[in-house]
């Protein structure tokens, strides 16, 4: 029997099959999310080769430790994104340890909008790249520049709030409140768009 195409099964089912050792489930998840996950890795590492290597590592880890996923703690995509970001930031930190200083994948002050463009070549899974992607971009556009910048530095730059304060010359409390307000605003905007 031919396994059904990846997008015929929902993510929870795929994760469940993956935990039972189903290679097709892993393949389906790869087809669905490799585009967005690679973009995330590349955004943090700013190196395509390294980003692809990391993507392989993440999917291998997913294969070996699929049972670690707990559906009560979030959707599979949230888990995949968190895993990818975490491993990418770890790589950045190991660069820092190696070189004795924090080396970001790019300019930490770079505006997040510069990388938030509509894809020129739409991926196979239109769900992620399509409406949701546009919704997130619109939500981010609703934030002010400082809010976007602190989110960028924290999420993609892997900087702590004190490092962000040092980079932006903003007071520590201001950085904290910008992050909080940015996430609240983002949540509200996404909720409105749903």
């Amino acid at each position: 029997m031919t396994p059904p195409p990846s997008d015929q099964r929902d993510d929870y089912e795929l994760m469940s099959l993956l935990a039972q050792g189903d290679r097709d489930a892993l393949s389906a998840l790869y087809d669905k999310y490799s585009g967005v996950l690679l973009a995330l890795c590349q955004r943090i590492l700013h190196d395509l080769t390294e980003a692809e290597q990391l993507l392989l590592d993440v999917f291998t880890e997913l294969w070996l430790k699929a049972e670690r996923y707990d559906r009560d703690r979030g959707a599979p995509l949230t888990y995949l994104i968190t895993l990818c970001r975490s491993r990418a930031i770890d790589r950045c930190r190991s660069r820092r340890n190696k070189h004795g200083k924090w080396i970001l994948g790019g300019n930490p002050a770079e505006n997040v909008l510069s990388t938030l463009q509509a894809p020129s070549d739409p991926p196979a899974d239109a769900m992620v790249a399509g409406e949701q992607g546009q919704a997130v971009r619109r939500a981010l556009n609703a934030l002010n520049n400082v809010q976007r910048q602190v989110l960028e530095l924290a999420y993609y730059g892997g900087l702590s709030h004190s490092e962000i304060a040092e980079n932006t010359q903003l007071p520590l409390g201001t950085v904290k409140s910008h992050i909080r307000l940015a996430l609240i605003r983002l949540r509200q905007e996404l909720r409105t768009m749903q």
């Binding site: 290679r23 892993l26 393949s27 790869y30 087809d31 490799s34 585009g35 967005v36 996950l37 690679l38 973009a39 995330l40 590349q42 955004r43 395509l48 980003a51 692809e52 993507l55 392989l56 999917f59 291998t60 294969w63 979030g74 959707a75 995509l77 949230t78 994104i81 968190t82 990818c84 970001r85 990388t115 938030l116 463009q117 509509a118 894809p119 020129s120 070549d121 739409p122 991926p123 992620v128 790249a129 949701q132 992607g133 997130v136 971009r137 939500a139 981010l140 989110l151 999420y155 996430l183 983002l186 949540r187 996404l190």
Partner: peptide, 27 residues
């Protein structure tokens, strides 16, 4: 969940075609 939505706003990248084969091979 809200923070994890951030990368969805990135322009998706296209992995090298051989990458998937490489993944399945190394599993």
């Amino acid at each position: 969940a809200t923070a994890a939505m951030l990368p969805i706003g990135l322009a998706p990248a296209t992995p090298t075609p051989a990458l998937k084969a490489s993944l399945l091979e190394r599993l």
